[in-house]
């Protein structure tokens, strides 16, 4: 019986990080006694007195503070209440944290947790996926766990890394995604074949993995075997695993929840087109959200983001070519 949720994995990883490394501390809005807006830090303040701090509503200062603390050898985990609000701390992330090592040879071991992605009724400012924005900047590691196991192990690995990590955890997976245990750790930077196939490759990550797996299952009923690759980390991107999959299938669809202009999905298509054009039997396709702010009402929201149905439709188009 599956009993550990994705959210509990994130809490447990922070527990473990605090327990095993005295340099780790947590800083974020409402995360101490209240346990965080999503309860990702529930009881951690009580279990680790003096290591979990409520911050003012100051995303810029929160990241700046983490950078200063990292210089002193601390390994802060910063919780953004919603990924969307990290835009207020954007300058500190891309200009302060991301440039520190390159400019001064001083490592910057900070982990920034971004509760990301859409859930019904969350609207334009509590639904965003920021991985593509941050991946554009040098000096950051961008992780997008899609499973309970990855949520746990990749968060623990983030804290151990000597570089700033943007940890994009998906809110849609928080309560619904469950596993029996934390399973095995896989290294950061390696993609995973989530479902093997031979007729087409879907490259995806985060919550879209699960929509893509369902779409692949739908296509199976029509006799197609679709391979699904879970990127796990958007940056670095495991190009080798992607190319190997395309070599097997000859067809590529890339699915992401963030906005369609540029971004992680475009990066995958660009790499495959330039490095493996000869392997493609059909033009590579991308599926992202629509190019509008994220709508509030579920009727609109379900049509704004990629879903099992829209991914299946794209796959059929790809397979018919």
């Amino acid at each position: 019986m599956s009993s550990i949720t994705y959210l509990e994995a994130i809490r447990e990883a922070q527990y473990e990080a605090l327990r095993t490394n005295p340099d780790v501390f947590l800083y974020g809005q409402d995360i101490n006694a209240f346990g965080g807006a999503f309860k990702a830090t529930k009881n951690l303040g009580r279990e680790f007195p003096g290591r979990v701090f409520d911050s003012p509503i100051s995303e810029d200062a929160m990241i700046g503070m983490a950078v200063g603390a990292a210089v002193e050898g601390a390994r802060p985990i910063i919780e953004m209440q919603f990924a969307d609000f990290s835009s207020v701390g954007f300058n500190q992330i891309v200009n302060q944290a991301a440039t520190l090592y390159w400019r001064t040879q001083t490592p910057c071991p900070i982990t920034i947790r971004l509760p990301s992605g859409g859930t019904a009724g969350s609207g334009p400012f509590h639904s965003q996926s920021m991985e593509s924005i941050y991946a554009h900047y040098p000096g950051l590691v961008i992780l997008t766990p899609a499973t309970v196991e990855d949520a746990y192990w990749m968060l623990l690995d983030s804290v151990k890394l000597d570089d700033p990590v943007i940890f994009c955890e998906h809110k849609f997976l928080y309560y619904h995604l469950k596993a029996d245990d934390f399973g095995q750790a896989m290294p950061i930077g390696k993609a995973r074949i989530a479902r093997p196939g031979r007729d087409a490759t879907v490259v995806t990550y985060s919550a879209m993995l699960h929509e893509s797996l369902k779409a692949a299952e739908e296509l199976r009923l029509d006799g197609y075997e679709v391979e699904v690759v879970d990127l796990r980390s958007v940056k670095p991107m495991d190009t080798d695993t992607i190319l190997a999959s395309v070599a097997r299938t000859g067809r590529l669809l890339v699915v992401g929840e963030s906005f369609p202009w540029g971004g992680a999905t475009a990066e995958v298509v660009a790499r495959v087109a330039s490095e493996a054009f000869h392997l493609l039997d059909a033009p590579p396709l991308r599926l992202n959200s629509k190019d509008t702010p994220i709508p509030y009402h579920p009727n609109l929201w379900k049509s704004h983001r990629p879903t099992t149905a829209s991914i299946s439709a794209e796959l059929r188009k790809l397979l018919r070519y």
Binding site: F25, A61, G64, M65, G68, A70
Partner: peptide, 15 residues
């Protein structure tokens, strides 16, 4: 943007 960085170094020392 440097103010919070200096503050963060002091904060870490206190912890």
């Amino acid at each position: 943007s440097l103010l919070s960085v200096v503050a963060g170094a002091l904060f870490a020392r206190r912890i």
